[in-house]
Amino acid sequence: MRLVVVSAGLSVPSSTRLLADRLAEATARRAATARPASADATRAPGSAPDAAAPGPASAGPVPAGSASVDVQVVELRELAVEIAHNFTNGFPGPALSAAIDAVTAADGLIVVTPVFSASYSGLFKSFFDVLSVSDKDAVAGTPVLIAATGGTARHSLVLEHALRPLFAYLRAIAVPTGVYAASEDWGAEGLAERIERAAGELAGLMAGAAAVTASTASAAATVPTAPATAATAASTATAAAPVVRGAGGGVPGPASATVVPFAQRLAALRP
């Protein structure tokens, strides 16, 4: 599964990037062991649960970019110039084009922005403007975890009045839990729990989508082709044979049969 993290932090180090990294690590760990919600429903009656696949609660730390989850971080600060040039000339540069391709191909997204003037940053919005212009369905149906950082908890509703409507317009699937981290939240109780809850929701959606895709591909590959029978071959040959007009009327027959023009047959019926 491909997890792409979009960070719009401007400084180095950045609290926005720090939150993005913590969300990515938690999501990668959850996704590596996540079982789709329908897995238990499809188990044969009376069979025991699979002991080799522990649930998220018993999972150990899994580093980002493990064999199960490929994590890629897109730092918008490094793309600011190419984003501005794209608005003026209409063509994305190489780095911006690679970022657009990564986001479009992602199985799940984590997006994190600092708060500016009670909303997402202009750099963050500009990137998704460029993305939607290049492909209006770029993130349609993609699970996305929304997050933001700010200097005060009074901006926490930016998740609901700015970020969630933006991704609803882009037709992405925003997970129910958004994560906002104010300056006083770092090291305080509550942030780690919100990160884990949001990461679990994103990992579950990613695992469910991957299971549906795999099931559809497997079903398409195993659909049997009905063998041709004598009756089928005869029916096909009959349907393909040209319709000719002979003494017996319109019946399928060989192409060499005599065809009587309609005007001649009509004249024969007149007294």
Rank of each mutant, 00 (worst) to 15 (best):
V103G: 10
T27A: 06
L76Q: 07
A267E: 14
A241G: 08
V130C: 10
A24L: 01
S215R: 13
T142F: 06
P227Y: 07
A203L: 04
V179Y: 01
T149M: 00
A102R: 12
V243W: 15
Q72M: 04
L123Q: 12
L76V: 07
Y120Q: 09
D50F: 08
A67V: 12
I146Y: 01
L205D: 11
V133K: 13
T236K: 13
F128E: 09
A148P: 07
V212E: 14
A32E: 11
A53N: 10
L79T: 03
T216S: 14
L166D: 05
T142H: 11
S15E: 02
Q264M: 09
H155Y: 09
A106D: 09
P176Q: 08
A257C: 06
P45M: 04
A44L: 15
T225I: 14
Q264N: 10
A48G: 08
R43E: 04
T216P: 04
G248S: 14
L131K: 10
A214N: 05
S256N: 14
T232R: 15
F127A: 09
G187P: 05
A53M: 12
R245V: 11
R154A: 14
F91Y: 11
A267Q: 12
A239W: 07
E196G: 00
F262Y: 12
A188V: 02
L266R: 13
T177F: 00
G249V: 03
I100C: 13
A147N: 01
S132A: 15
S38G: 05
I195R: 00
G200H: 00
L19P: 00
A267T: 09
P94M: 11
R197K: 10
Q264G: 04
I146T: 11
A220C: 03
D137N: 15
A233C: 04
R29F: 01
V251K: 13
A26F: 00
T33M: 09
A239C: 04
L269W: 10
G200F: 01
A147K: 01
D70R: 15
A51V: 13
G141R: 09
P49T: 07
A59L: 03
E184F: 04
T222Q: 13
R270W: 07
W186H: 05
G248H: 14
D135V: 06
D21L: 02
T238S: 12
A268I: 02
S134W: 05
S11V: 08
V144I: 12
D129G: 10
A53D: 13
V112D: 02
P13K: 08
Y180P: 01
G190I: 03
A20M: 02
A221L: 10
A48T: 14
L157G: 05
G204Q: 12
L123D: 05
